[in-house]
């Protein structure tokens, strides 16, 4: 067992996937020789060769569409899109083909593939490099959407995604790549897709988040604890299929819910959480659900990004509002 960053855990997970499954290939821009813009595939081409870790021309639609064909043909492609904001040229392939071939062919053809997308802001990057538009993919029937926030989960969920018989959008929180470390099992392990994790038990309010915002959410729970508020922290880990049972059980227990994400508010994942809570747990609620989210604006550039991303303070304030409601 080694202490790894999220980036290292993903690298180890990809290495093990390549070693275990001869039908796995990694495809993407600069994933081979340079090991990817975030070095997640570092060293893999050296070990497995350019036929397994494939540098591609700059063509997101092409990469995904070609990988789709590979998957239909029996391979297990793992595609890297450099940044989530670059996934839009591949949108047609993902939505019209990857997500649909099983239905279109009534199970005869399937596209078991993983599309990895580093997502989210907070690193002062250029425009299009800070997107958090998971809702688009969550809203698309036929896709699974996974968003790890911890190194061990990242490795385990990646292994599950590679082995999954259906296509998985695998969102990687850019600003946590090297910001969190934890002990990660050396051997291949899987974390089931579709299971949320109750990271911290509490009784007063449920804080729900996933991916990059888990960092601020955890910190908010600490601050609340110092103020005598017992917050339960739920890391959803998978957005599709959602672990509705764990989520609702927590809200029923605490009677209050704050959902946190950096994606824009309108029809963001928080809207789904609030709707589910309203439909199924309304009578357990002691306060209206709160959403702490990015604004319905373009993510600001470096100098103003701080005004966009939900802060620990905003999460704490929202939790306290539910307590005084």
């Amino acid at each position: 067992m080694a202490v790894l960053t999220l980036a290292q855990a993903l690298n180890q997970g990809l290495e093990q996937a390549l070693a275990e499954h001869p039908e796995v290939v990694i495809l993407g821009e600069d994933v081979g020789r340079t090991g990817g813009v975030f070095r997640i595939t570092d060293g893999l081409q050296r070990r497995f060769g350019p036929e397994r870790v494939v540098d591609t021309p700059v063509a997101e639609s092409g990469i995904v569409g070609m990988a789709f064909g590979m998957a239909v043909g029996g391979m297990r492609p793992v595609v890297e899109i450099q940044f989530m904001g670059f996934s839009y040229p591949a949108f047609d392939q993902i939505v019209n083909h990857v997500a649909r071939i099983r239905n279109r062919s009534r199970h005869r053809f399937t596209a078991p593939m993983v599309i990895r997308m580093p997502y989210g802001g907070g690193i002062g990057a250029a425009e299009h490099h800070s997107e958090s538009t998971e809702t688009i993919y969550v809203h698309t029937p036929g896709l699974k959407v996974v968003v790890p926030s911890r190194p061990a989960d990242a490795k385990g969920l990646l292994a599950s995604a590679v082995e999954d018989p259906d296509p998985v959008i695998f969102l990687e929180p850019i600003r946590l790549y090297r910001a969190v470390r934890e002990t990660v099992p050396e051997d291949p392990h899987t974390v089931p897709i579709g299971e949320a994790s109750i990271e911290r038990e509490g009784t007063d309010v449920t804080l729900v988040s996933y991916g990059a915002m888990m960092k601020e959410t955890r910190q908010a729970a600490e601050v609340l604890a110092e103020r005598g508020v017992s917050a339960e922290v739920v890391d959803l880990r998978t957005l599709v299929p959602l672990d509705t049972d764990r989520l609702l059980a927590s809200v029923e227990k605490t009677g209050r819910v704050v959902v946190v994400h950096e994606a824009p508010r309108t029809l963001g994942f928080g809207a789904e959480v609030a709707a589910l809570v309203a439909e199924r747990a309304l009578y357990s609620l002691q306060a209206p659900p709160k959403r702490v989210t990015g604004w319905d604006t373009v993510v600001p550039l470096k100098k103003s990004e701080q005004y966009y991303l939900p802060s620990v303070g905003r999460i704490v304030a929202a939790a306290e509002e539910t307590l005084t409601a």
Partner: peptide, 29 residues
């Protein structure tokens, strides 16, 4: 859209053009 097991023909694409890439991937596989 479900051909018999021995038939290696994908059900047709209605959107125009996207399916050409699928042939590329199938040739790769």
């Amino acid at each position: 859209g479900r051909p018999p097991e021995h038939v290696s023909v994908l059900p047709p694409s209605i959107t125009v053009g996207g399916h050409m890439l699928h042939a590329v991937g199938l040739a790769w596989s």
